[in-house]
Amino acid sequence: MINFHLIKVRKFPTGREVQEVVESANDGGGPVSTALAVAGKFGANVVMLDRIGDDMTGRTILEDFKIYNVHTDGVEVVGGTISGCATILVEAESGKRAIFFERSTAPEYGESDLVRDLITDSKILHINGRHRQALLPAIKSAKKAHTLVSFDGGANRYESSLDEIMAHIDICIVARDFGEKYTGETDLMKACYSIHEKGALIAGVTDGANGSYFVWPDGTEYRCAAYSQDTIVDTTGCGDSFHGAFLYGLTQWGTIDEQGILDLQYTPNEVLEACAKLASAVGALNTRQLGGRSGLPTLDEAKQLANI
Rank of each mutant, 00 (worst) to 15 (best):
S33N: 04
G74C: 09
D50V: 04
V32K: 08
K66N: 11
V75F: 11
P31S: 15
D73M: 01
E76D: 14
L36F: 03
D64H: 14
P13E: 02
A39F: 06
I67E: 12
T72L: 09
I67L: 13
S83A: 11
H71Y: 08
I52S: 08
N45Q: 07
D55R: 10
V18M: 02
F65K: 07
D54K: 06
P13T: 02
E63A: 15
G28N: 04
V75I: 13
T60D: 10
G15A: 01
V47A: 13
G28W: 01
G40Y: 02
V38F: 12
G58F: 08
N69K: 13
G74W: 11
I61Q: 12
I52G: 05
S24G: 01
F4P: 01
F42E: 02
N45T: 04
A37D: 09
V46G: 02
V38H: 12
Y68C: 09
P13F: 08
D55A: 10
G30C: 05
I52K: 08
R10S: 11
A35M: 04
V78L: 14
V78G: 14
P31K: 15
E23D: 11
I7M: 10
T81S: 15
V22N: 00
K41H: 12
A35D: 04
E20Y: 06
P13Q: 05
A39H: 07
Y68V: 06
K11Y: 06
V22I: 04
I52H: 07
T57E: 10
D50A: 15
M48D: 07
M56H: 12
I82E: 12
T72F: 09
F12P: 00
D73H: 06
Q19N: 00
M48A: 14
E76A: 14
V21E: 00
V70G: 09
V21G: 00
G80T: 04
F12E: 01
E63V: 02
A37N: 06
H5Y: 15
V9N: 01
I61V: 14
D54V: 01
L6G: 02
A25G: 03
G79W: 11
A25Y: 06
D73T: 03
K41M: 13
N26S: 11
F42Y: 15
V32Y: 08
V18T: 08
Q19S: 08
V78Q: 14
G80A: 05
D54I: 03
T72N: 08
G79Y: 10
E20N: 08
T57I: 13
N45R: 08
V32H: 09
E17D: 04
P13S: 05
L36K: 01
G15L: 00
T14Q: 06
N26K: 12
R10G: 12
E17Y: 03
G53N: 05
D73I: 01
V75Q: 08
A39T: 02
F4L: 15
A35K: 04
I82W: 05
V46R: 05
N69L: 06
V18E: 05
S83V: 04
